[in-house]
Design a protein around this nucleic acid. Structure first.
Length: 274
DNA sequence: CCCATGTCCTGCCAGC
DNA sequence: TGCTGGCAGGACATGG
């Protein structure tokens, strides 16, 4: 599932291909993917627009277009944005095809159809996509130890739930949350406000470390994730606990356990994470 | 306000 | 062997 490192890897692979390119056609094969505007407007607005830049905010990809428009994409769980030649076969579950003037297509392929896109004037579409309420960008200078302390002190929620909530920190999903909690030595059910200064520092360090590691390995490909050119990442080979139920903890050797937190599976070591 | 739970969606796989 | 039910989860809606 694309989390911050995966979305950023997709951004990096797509950016040089789409930047400066002019859209000639936008074809929507499955209407539920496009939240706003109406499909007809979506398809008529995009042709003629030029891609000025491709940015990322949390798990969202932001295509800055000419004339003050922005196209926002969230990939959900299984969504892929692929750069392909127009002659490439139509893969199953292809929902949107955006064609560019100089021979290339951006195709949105999503088996589970949790992915969504939004098009509109920048200010308005940011609001519609919920970007105004998004939490701190964890790999930015804004994400300081003090900022994390402020966040943990603000709620009595379980740590795992806090890490997954994009309103606090933007970009962590189930995989990197579990990995960060493991490296910080913190139990997923710890009450956020109970963390002391040392624990907050460890969590801050762990969050930054796991995201950078994921990024350096081109993301985690457990099942569906590939970058904008169809390449898998390697970070699945470096995971400590995620998906490793019953396997030995890399630190102490005790079998990794699971727990349901807020409907999500949490992988953790009951000896190392307190 | 705060937080937990339900919903969407389809492929996969354990278990019968 | 073939079927089935449960599981996977990001973000939003809902309701206590």
């Amino acid at each position: 599932m694309p989390e911050l490192p995966e979305v950023e890897t997709i951004r990096r692979t797509l950016e040089p291909r789409v930047r400066g390119q002019v859209i000639t056609e936008a074809l929507v094969l499955h209407p539920s993917v496009v939240v706003t505007p109406e499909i007809q407007e979506f398809s008529s607005l995009l042709p003629g627009k030029k891609v000025i830049a491709l940015d990322r905010r949390g798990k969202y990809l932001l295509f800055s277009l000419s004339e003050g428009y922005t196209l926002i994409w969230h990939l959900g769980m299984t969504g892929r944005l692929l750069w392909l030649e127009p002659e490439h076969i139509l893969e199953p579950h292809t929902h949107v095809i955006i064609t560019f003037k100089y021979h290339g297509q951006l195709r949105f392929v999503d088996v589970r159809r949790f992915g969504r896109c939004y098009l509109g004037y920048t200010q308005e579409v940011f609001r519609q996509a919920g970007l105004h309420d998004l939490g701190v960008e964890p790999l930015s200078p804004d994400f300081t130890i003090e900022k994390l302390a402020q966040i943990t002190h603000s709620t009595r929620r379980h740590l795992k739930n806090l890490l997954l909530d994009q309103h606090y920190i933007a970009g962590l999903g189930n995989i990197y949350s579990d990995e960060a909690l493991f490296w910080a030595g913190l139990h997923p059910l710890r009450v956020a406000s109970s963390l002391d200064k040392k624990e907050i520092e460890r969590l801050h360090q762990a969050i930054c470390q796991v995201l950078k590691a994921g990024l350096s390995h081109g993301g985690t490909s457990i099942r569906d994730y590939v970058d904008g050119t169809g390449r898998k990442g390697n970070h699945q080979d470096y995971l400590a606990v995620y998906g490793k139920k019953g396997q030995p903890c890399p630190r102490c050797g005790k079998a990794i356990e699971t727990l349901k937190v807020g409907g999500r599976t949490s992988y953790f070591c009951s000896r190392c994470q307190l």
